[in-house]
Simulated scan of single mutants.
Amino acid sequence: MNEQEISGVVQAVLERMKNTGSAHGAGHVCTCKKHKMTLEKANALIEKVQAKASEMGVRAVVAVADQAGRPVSVQSMDGAYIASFDIALNKSFTSASLNMSTEALSHLSQPGQPLYGIQFTNDGKIVIFGGGEVLEAEGKMIGALGVSGGTAKQDTELAAYGREVFKEVIACL
């Protein structure tokens, strides 16, 4: 995605906000707790993902961000790679900021594809390999998950597991 395309997308969002009062619709201000990522939700999800990682023999770092890509909680399992901390954070940022999994982005960012080179934007925080997933509540994106520490396949599997188990987490809280 080049600067002109990014600028066009930003302009469209700003125009929509100007015309409707927000990015969500006329006067929409969501204060509903189920539509917000909370520390309680983030930690409950991390606990489940860590349990699955242990079953798989993976020592992971698990990060949960809010819908703006800001970290809510990050936990490192004993023995996790030091580098996995920033990678997990950046996977959660990537999924939140682009509203897509990093696995899906990996295909769109290959040479000749529409998002080729996107990993060089946002101060290098965009991750173009699996392990990041969008988290939703009632069809609304409320945050994102980033997992790092295993192979790319294991991270992708753990993040997908986290996305699915998040439905149970929010049902209990």
Rank of each mutant, 00 (worst) to 15 (best):
Thr156Gln: 15
His28Gly: 09
Asn90Asp: 10
Gly150Met: 02
Ala104Trp: 07
Leu45Pro: 01
Asn2Phe: 03
Arg163Cys: 02
Gly132Val: 06
Ser109Tyr: 02
Ser22Trp: 04
Lys18Ser: 09
Leu45Asn: 00
Ser97Gln: 14
Asn90Pro: 03
Ala65Asp: 12
Cys172His: 15
Gly149Cys: 04
Glu55Gly: 01
Ala60Tyr: 06
Arg163Lys: 11
Ser106Cys: 02
Val13Ile: 10
Leu14Phe: 05
Ala104Glu: 13
Arg70Gly: 14
Gln113Ala: 14
Lys91Gly: 00
Gly21Asp: 07
Leu135Gly: 11
Thr102Glu: 03
Arg163Val: 00
Gly131Lys: 06
Leu39His: 11
Asn2Pro: 08
Gly69Val: 06
Val9Glu: 09
Phe85His: 12
Met1Glu: 00
Asn43Glu: 13
Ile142Lys: 05
Ile118Gln: 05
Leu105Lys: 08
Ser101Tyr: 03
Ala65Lys: 02
Val29Arg: 11
Arg59Gln: 13
Pro114Leu: 02
Met1Cys: 02
Glu168Met: 03
Lys140Tyr: 10
Gly139Ala: 06
Gly25Pro: 09
Gly150Cys: 02
His107Asp: 13
Glu47Met: 11
Val49Trp: 03
Ala160Ile: 02
Val127Ile: 15
Thr94Gly: 00
Met100His: 02
Ser7Phe: 09
Ser95Asn: 03
Met37Gly: 00
Glu157Leu: 05
Lys48Phe: 05
Pro71Ala: 12
Asn19Gln: 15
Ala26Ile: 04
Ala96Thr: 04
Ser101Thr: 07
Val147Gly: 04
Arg70Val: 12
Leu39Ala: 09
Glu55Trp: 03
Ile6Met: 14
Ser97Thr: 11
Leu135Phe: 07
Leu98Pro: 10
Arg59Thr: 14
Leu14Glu: 13
Gln50Lys: 10
Leu39Phe: 10
Glu47Pro: 07
Gly27Pro: 03
Val74His: 05
Ser54Ile: 12
Gly79Val: 03
Val62Ala: 00
Lys140Gln: 06
Ile128Trp: 10
Ile6Glu: 13
Gln4Cys: 00
Met77Ala: 05
Ile46Val: 07
Ser22Lys: 03
Val61Met: 02
Asn122Ser: 14
Gly27Tyr: 05
Ile170Trp: 14
Glu136Phe: 15
Gln119Trp: 09
Ala137His: 09
Lys34Glu: 15
Glu40Val: 12
Ala159Thr: 04
Glu3Trp: 02
Ala53Met: 13
Ala53Leu: 14
Leu108Tyr: 01
Val58Gln: 03
Asn122Cys: 12
Lys125Asn: 12
Thr20Lys: 12
His28Cys: 11
Lys41Trp: 04
Phe120Gly: 13
Lys33Cys: 08
Asp123Ser: 15
Val74Gly: 05
Glu157Pro: 00
Asp123Leu: 09
Ala23Leu: 12
Ala137Pro: 00
His28Met: 13
Tyr161Thr: 01
Tyr81Pro: 11
Lys153Leu: 08
Val169Cys: 01
Pro71Asp: 06
Gly8Asp: 08
Val147Thr: 00
Glu136Asp: 14
Lys36Ile: 08
His107Glu: 15
Ala63Lys: 03
Gly162Phe: 01
Val61Cys: 09
Ala42Trp: 01
Gly149Lys: 09
Ser106Trp: 00
Ala42Glu: 04
Glu3Pro: 05
Gly21Asn: 05
